[in-house]
Design a binder for these strands. Sequence first.
DNA 1: TAAGCGTGGAT
DNA 2: TATCCAAGCTT
Length: 344
Amino acid sequence: MRDVADISPALLAWYDRNARVLPWRTGPEDHAKGLRTAPYRVWLSEVMLQQTTVAAVRNYFRDFTTRWPTVTDLAQAEDADVMAAWAGLGYYARARNLLKCARVVAFDLGGQFPRTAQELQALPGIGPYTAAAIASIAFDAPSTVVDGNVERVVSRLFALTDPLPGTRPEIARLAGQITPQDRPGDHAQAMMDLGATLCTPRNPVCALCPLEAHCEAHAQGIAASLPVKAPKKVKPTRRGHVYVLIGPAGEVLVERRPDRGLLGGTLGFPTSDWAEERPAFAPPLKTDWQEAATEVRHTFTHFHLILTVHRGLGHVDGMTGNNAFSPDALPTLMRKVWEAAQPA
DNA sequence: TAAGCGTGGAT
DNA sequence: TATCCAAGCTT
């Protein structure tokens, strides 16, 4: 009979030899000297990493921490500056909640993050995962972190063959059982590193896995087939028009989208509604509109979008009629629109 | 509770 | 090209 108490020591021994070097991470030698990653940096990195790869986060984390070194600096930033800095990273509610959270911490909590997962989870944009991650990584509290990696690793360790998300409560229970009192933050990061590098969704590298001898799915020869997931729904396709209006001095007509919903709070060009049947051509003003040669195709989490791009010259008043326009401040969809609107 | 919410890399 | 999926949260 395998003993779950043996799992974390084996994992931590592997982690001490193989931990990835990351800008927001400190190692055992730092911890021995009493140095840990500042809670601000743990929080910022964890929010950026929600449903987002390490590779995508790196530069954003560097830029944010350079520009806003502390939570109080961030709390004092302009909304538009933070939204522009987040542009391209996706899930823009994260950026809006990031700023809300920073302001609570800086202005209501004296600039100090709470130390318990329960208190952390009460803050905007911090859910069960992020609360446990901050508590364990920043404060070394024995909170159990469950993200997609942990779900996969635990599903395999215990050969859970029932489909997600139904097995989530059982996964959380088992993940808690293997969380140590000593070094819970390193244990959490080790679980995630393992999932990211060896215990991968496809073609897991069991031969190199420090937990091979503890893994029930490996023993059964079914590791690669776990976790089982409920089937996805097919994505519908929506269509629409988008209008890129350029003023006589090169100004560009952009508008800030409402805070709620898709691309909430980001800058963009005026568009029609998006529907399965492409809505009628109805530009924001009358001018000589030219249809761009290529449509813009973009896939969101739950639908495909095809936009017909129109460009026109006209008077740009109000809005962002200024030469501060930069496509860097746009979400990716709108960067594609801008690119497609350039004359050939 | 299930759906809404981005993006880019891997396969 | 199509699909999957990544350190999830909110409503």
